[in-house]
Structures are given as structure tokens and as C-alpha cells.
Design a protein around this nucleic acid. Sequence first.
DNA 1: AGATCTATGTATAAAGA
DNA 2: TTCTTTATACATAGATC
Lengths: 166, 166
Amino acid sequence: MARRKMKHELISNESKRKVSFKKRKGGLLKKMNELTTLCGVMGCAIIYSTFDNRPEIWPSLPMLTRVLDKFIESPEEERERYTMNQKTFLGRHISWSSNALEREKKKNRGLEIQLTLNECLAGKSMQDLTCLEDMKELQLLLEENIKCFTDKIETMDLNYENENKK
Amino acid sequence: MARRKMKHELISNESKRKVSFKKRKGGLLKKMNELTTLCGVMGCAIIYSTFDNRPEIWPSLPMLTRVLDKFIESPEEERERYTMNQKTFLGRHISWSSNALEREKKKNRGLEIQLTLNECLAGKSMQDLTCLEDMKELQLLLEENIKCFTDKIETMDLNYENENKK
DNA sequence: AGATCTATGTATAAAGA
DNA sequence: TTCTTTATACATAGATC
């Protein structure tokens, strides 16, 4: 897209293709970063190529987890479960009042925390996290992530022991 | 990025944010389309927002699955470094057998865990997780994520207390 | 192979319709 | 609100080292 207008087709020259890939991958991830930050949304990008020895995942596996978790929800339950998750996400500290203004404030608060998390997980300046409350809410979120695994593991451990007793 | 240089922060005005989101989402998906076509790579983008009823996924969930599956069917160069001869999880568990790989084993084990988790979240039932060891490693991965936060919080708590003592 | 430069094509914020 | 327009900012292909 620069010195020459590109056709929408595979770049035949391999070295040029590789150079282009590196530039474009960086550009795409930057765009995703901007989109999620400026617009307050969750997003992930996954790029698999022979140029990299592992897939590029943006911003992080935990965030991918959250995004995919929402994606696989059935449409009927989507709204209800989103609301529930949102409450959970806020560390159960926030109740949804009927007051419209209050609701908006809390929504923004959630967005801010989410954005902060986004950036932290993207490997950005952890040093910028100066609000203790933010930190604690982030901690709660991450702890929730492992809770389901811990529960499952305990169940499996018990099953395993029972198997061996037979 | 146009009439005015944007700060890298949430757009406060909601209507502007929505307009920006629509444009940027389109732009991002176009970029992903170009990247995959021009450079011959596989990629997916997933965007979850309150502006859309459903998450935006590019190009499709099947493609996402393919992107993740691609690891398992690595090209020749990769096969030389990755030896896949054992299937324990969902019939696609990867193990490494050559000495040359030992030093990378730990690094790649992380990749395997990512794949496992990704596949579960990409629509496969958590019930299918039958390997206890996999579960425990997933747990460890997540616990590592919260460790940094916990440490930081403790430090901040101490600082906060010291501040108050003054 | 990467890093830097730069001309040019694109994306997009704001305004207008 | 949702288009269309337009002025700018940004991304990047090709060149050069």
C-alpha cells in the first residue's frame, strides 16, 4: 500500500512476503490494541504463520479465554449471561441500581477496569497500575479464572483415588 | 487518526465511540483479510462489544479451529523440530521425543497447554478434559498470571499503610 | 537477516447532509 | 442516527545500507 498499489493476492516473492508479513502483523496488532482501548471492547487476534514458531495471540491467552467464552454462549442466554459475567467481573462489589446515572457510572467503572486488565495482560506497563482497588479487582478476576480449574482438578483427584481403590 | 491525533484512551463521548468502533472494526477485519491473503497465513479476529448483538469473528469459527489445529499438522520444517507421536488429549496430544527438543520442551509445553485451553474454549466441552495432568498445568498457568498481581497488591498495601503512618 | 527512510496508498475523525 | 465527504494521520512497499 505504499510505493505501489497491491493486488489482493499472495505475494509471490517469498522474502518480500515475509517482510510484508512482519510489518502487517505489527500493524494489525496495533490496530487491535487501539480498537479495544479507544472503543472499550474486548477483542483478540490469532495469527498462525510459518514465519513464527508459535501463533501470535493478542492480547493474551486469558483475554482470549474471556472473548471466546462469550462467543460460544448461545444467543438466547447471551444477554443474561453477559450481565452475570459483568457482575462477577466487577468482583461482586457492584450492584446494579435502578438509577440510570448510577448504572452508567458503574458501567464505565467496569470498562475502565477491563481496559486496564487488557493492557496489563498485553504486557504493558504494570508500573502504571497505581490504584489499589483496581489491582484487587484484577486479582479477583484472575482468581475466578483458576477457580473452575481448581474445582475440576479436585473432582478429578477424588475420582482418580476412587478408581485406584477398586 | 484523521482530522485530529487521538490519545490512546477510551473515547469518552459514547456516540463518537460507537461511530469509531464501527469504522475501526471494519478496518481491522479488512487488514486481517489482506494479511492472510497477501502473506498466505491463517488468522482470526474476534471482537466482542456491546455495540453488536453477537461477537464479530473473522473469518469464521471453523477457521479459528483450523488456525489452532494447524499446530498439530505442522509443515515439514516444523516436523523436524516437533515430533508428534502420542495422542492423549482429544486425540491430539503432542509430545516431544528427540534430545534436540529437550531444551525447548518447557517452552513448547506452554504452547500445548494454550492449544488445549483454546480448543476447549473454541466450543469443545470442558467435560472432555480428562487428563488430570493437563488440568493441573492449566491451573498453574493461570496461577502464574495472578501471582504478579498478588505481589503488587501486597506491596501497595504496605506502602499504603506506611503512608498513613506518616 | 534487520533497521531506516520515504513516497504513496489507506484508514479514519470530524463535519456536513 | 446513518450516509458521504474531506482533511489528516497512519501504514507500508520498495529502496538503501
